[in-house]
C-alpha cells in the first residue's frame, strides 16, 4: 500500500470532518453515559449495579452469550468449511441462507420464534403437555439470539479459508489423514485469529441484542430480563442513574471488545503475510 503524501489543505479538511463526525457520533455518547452514571457519586453507582435484579440480568446475559457463542462457533466452523472446501449444487443458496439473518429485522426474528412456539402454534399442545416453555422464557431468548448472530463467525472465516486455499488439506488427505486431524492440525492454525475475531463479534451482538429478545422475553424482571431489557425498564421508570450505570458496564465491554478486535485483526494480518 502506497500512501500518497499530498499534504494540501484538502487533506486536513477531510481528516478534520471525519474526526469531528466520529467524535460526535461515537465518542460523545460513551462519555455521556459514563458521566451520567457517575454523576450521583460512586455509592449510587455501586448500588445500581449490585441491585439483585441487576445481578440477575447480568447473569442471564452472560448465560445467553455463552450458549450462543458455543452454538454459533460450531455452526460457523462447519458452514465456512462446507462453503469453501467443496463445490456442489445449491451452494449459493446455502451461502445466502447463512447470511440472511443479517438483513432481517430483529423484531421479525423474534416474531418468527413467537409464531413457532407460542400459544397459537401447532407445536403448542405438545410443548404444553411436556411443560416446555420457550416463549416468554429463557429458551426463547437464546433461540432469538442464536438466530440474530448466526452468520457472524462464518463470515469472518470464509475469506480467510478462501485465501489459504486447499492444497495443504488435500495433501494431508491423500496421505491418509482423517478429517478431524486435518482440521485441528492444518486448517485451524490458519483461521484461529479470524475465528476468535468472529467469536468476539458474536459475543458482542449476543450481549447487546435488544429487539429480538424483547419480543420473546415477556419482561419478567429477575427471570427473563437481559441487561439491555433491564436498562430499558430502568429508563422507562426514569431511573437514569441506574440505566446509565448498567449501560456503562456494557460500554466497558464494548471498548474491551474493540481493543481485542484490533489485536486479533493485527495478528491475523501478520500471519497471512508470513
Amino acid at each position: 500500500m502506497k500512501i500518497r503524501n499530498d499534504s494540501g489543505p484538502v487533506k486536513w479538511v477531510l481528516i478534520g470532518i471525519s474526526a469531528l463526525f466520529l467524535f460526535v457520533m461515537l465518542i460523545l455518547p460513551l462519555v455521556y453515559v459514563v458521566f451520567t452514571a457517575l454523576r450521583d457519586g460512586l455509592d449510587s453507582y455501586a448500588k445500581a449495579v449490585t441491585d439483585p435484579y441487576a445481578l440477575k440480568a447480568i447473569g442471564l446475559t452472560v448465560k445467553v452469550t455463552v450458549i450462543t457463542v458455543l452454538v454459533n462457533s460450531a455452526f460457523g466452523l462447519f458452514a465456512a468449511w462446507l462453503l469453501t472446501r467443496y463445490s456442489f449444487r445449491g451452494k449459493g443458496v446455502l451461502a445466502a441462507l447463512t447470511d440472511l439473518p443479517l438483513s432481517i429485522s430483529p423484531i421479525i426474528a423474534g416474531l418468527v420464534f413467537l409464531l413457532m412456539f407460542g400459544r397459537q402454534s401447532f407445536l403448542y399442545p405438545f410443548l404444553d403437555a411436556n411443560n416446555i416453555r420457550i416463549v416468554f422464557a429463557q429458551p426463547g431468548i437464546v433461540l432469538a439470539t442464536i438466530f440474530v448472530t448466526l452468520p457472524f463467525i462464518s463470515r469472518e472465516l470464509i475469506p480467510v479459508l478462501n485465501a489459504v486455499g486447499t492444497e495443504e488439506e488435500e495433501a494431508a488427505a491423500l496421505m491418509g489423514a482423517k478429517g478431524f486431524y486435518i482440521f485441528t492440525q492444518i486448517t485451524f492454525p490458519h483461521i484461529r485469529w479470524a475465528f476468535f475475531y468472529g467469536v468476539v463479534l458474536c459475543a458482542a451482538r449476543a450481549m447487546g441484542e435488544f429487539g429480538a429478545v424483547s419480543v420473546l422475553s415477556g419482561h419478567l424482571n429477575g427471570l427473563t430480563n437481559t441487561m439491555p431489557l433491564y436498562i430499558e425498564l430502568l429508563y422507562q421508570g426514569f431511573d437514569f442513574t441506574g440505566a446509565f450505570a448498567m449501560s456503562s458496564i456494557l460500554i466497558v465491554m464494548a471498548v474491551l471488545i474493540l481493543i481485542l478486535r484490533n489485536i486479533l485483526e493485527y495478528r491475523g494480518k501478520k500471519e497471512l503475510e508470513i
Partner: peptide
C-alpha cells in the same frame, strides 16, 4: 489514525439500547 480505524466498529460492539438512550439524552 490507528485510533480512528479502531473505533469504526463501535456500533457493532455497543448494544443498540445503550446507544439509543445515550443519543436521546444528548
Amino acid at each position: 489514525k490507528r485510533l480512528m480505524d479502531g473505533m469504526i466498529e463501535l456500533p457493532f460492539a455497543l448494544p443498540t439500547a445503550v446507544a439509543g438512550i445515550a443519543l436521546t439524552h444528548l
